[in-house]
Design a binder for these strands. Structure first.
Lengths: 242, 242
DNA sequence: TTTCAACTCCCCAGAAACAGCGAGGGGAGA
DNA sequence: TCTCCCCTCGCTGTTTCTGGGGAGTTGAAA
């Protein structure tokens, strides 16, 4: 935790981030950041609505591979917890009570992760979601000190890192050319809050058939296989809010 | 734009933000921030999916009233533009081409807004969306200098301001009932990605009826009226990740 | 040990959603 | 002007989902 002394000025870090020119640089940069902050691990983990993931960081490749293979995304308390939170969170404040979570934590530590963690959720339009995580092995007081002193720097670094990562991933930015029309949004929203088609049609004062046209149109635009899928995608992409 | 000299240390500003105790303080703080940054206006504008809005800032009350009355939220190029963006944006880079946008801009300036603006989008779970905006009247070079030098401070201030505003927001009740069982999570997740019940049952290697029991159980736990509603609620509450 | 929640399986009838065909009016932008 | 998208409405048949029953095993917590 003595990395604080050797941490380059934040300006320098951010400028290097802004000046980097290729996706491969991101891995180098995050290693540099990890060393600069003097922690065991630093990770950037991006998730989109389709379940695609991208990440770079300093976790052991074996752990990353296992994480992906086992679909740990769906049980990872860090992801699940941050997904519902607005702000950066210390891992200690997450919910580790379930058996699956404890097993996950134990396995992660077997692969070299530390006992402390701090994750910053980052969001974009259309449900874009990413995590910037710092992981370390140390006792609680040291960790609390680190978080308190480095919180602001980490927020800025996470922000800039995400910005840079997005520049190299044009395909990651969802095809937003298919925005839903206002009526489609209303229709999908009503279904998402539990209305049946007939009820939704009544609420919008249109025929049920017309409502159905909106649903079908929205389904097509969202590339959804059925109505439930369409509602889920609209929610994931932030096109509707319930 | 000479406010830069009088700007208190960022630490001081953030600490005052963290220490504020009541929603009414927010208005005082943002006025102080406006003066500290030496700009004409500074505004925090929070929007949720239901069309509810909350804001504080230094725009003329007449303008705010008119904005709300006319439902300008739906045509405001700043809101529309930032909603689709990941990162802070200069108003010059927004799309002002439509007739409605130009009329809106002209009217805003009649109410005392400056010609320059810089807005920072802020997002939370469940589509929470807020804007932190700086507005000023000056020429382009001065504005560019201001943005370049103050960008990082503004990002942090926006972040902390949003965090504080959310503490006072009663509408953001956690409302997490009982958690779903692992099987229920799997079932709901598969439906959310477009599987039919039969497909989902096949994927989980269980009978369709068993799958149905999970769906019904999840529906009950989530207080949902139908399957689509259950999927929407599970997504909104971050119980599943799609 | 008992209890309880989770997991697994089966039947049936009615309600709802799906998929495909069609049509016309209106407004904004090229 | 003309095109394209949005909004509105109708019909028919097939597939799927919903909601009401009941019943057995397992494992973990009380």
């Amino acid at each position: 935790m003595d990395g604080l002394a050797t941490l380059p000025r934040l300006e320098t870090v951010l400028e290097r981030l802004e000046g980097s020119a290729a996706l491969e640089d991101m891995q180098d940069i995050i290693v540099g950041l990890r060393d600069a902050f003097g922690v065991d691990h630093m990770v950037y983990h991006w998730v989109n609505g389709n379940g695609d993931q991208y990440g770079c960081g300093t976790y052991a490749p074996e752990w990353v591979e296992r994480y992906l293979e086992q679909g740990y995304l769906r049980i990872d308390p860090v992801v699940l917890g941050c997904f519902q939170r607005f702000h950066p969170v210390d891992w200690k404040r997450l919910d580790w009570s379930s058996k699956a979570a404890r097993a996950f934590q134990k396995e992660a530590m077997d692969y070299g992760l530390g006992n402390q963690g701090y994750s910053i959720p980052i969001r974009g339009p259309n449900g874009q979601f990413a995590l910037f995580t710092v992981n370390h092995r140390c006792d609680d007081p040291d960790w609390a000190t680190f978080c308190a002193t480095k919180r602001r720097d980490l927020i800025l670094v996470a922000h800039y890192f995400n910005q840079k990562a997005l520049e190299f991933e044009p395909g990651r930015i969802p095809e937003q050319g298919q925005a839903l029309s206002p009526r489609e949004v209303e229709a999908i929203t009503l279904l998402a809050v539990g209305y049946s088609r007939a009820q939704a049609a009544g609420e919008l004062s249109i025929s049920e058939h017309t409502l159905r046209v909106y649903i079908e149109s929205a389904r097509f635009k969202l590339g959804a296989l059925n109505t439930t899928h369409a509602v889920a995608r609209a929610l994931s992409r932030g096109l509707i809010v319930v």
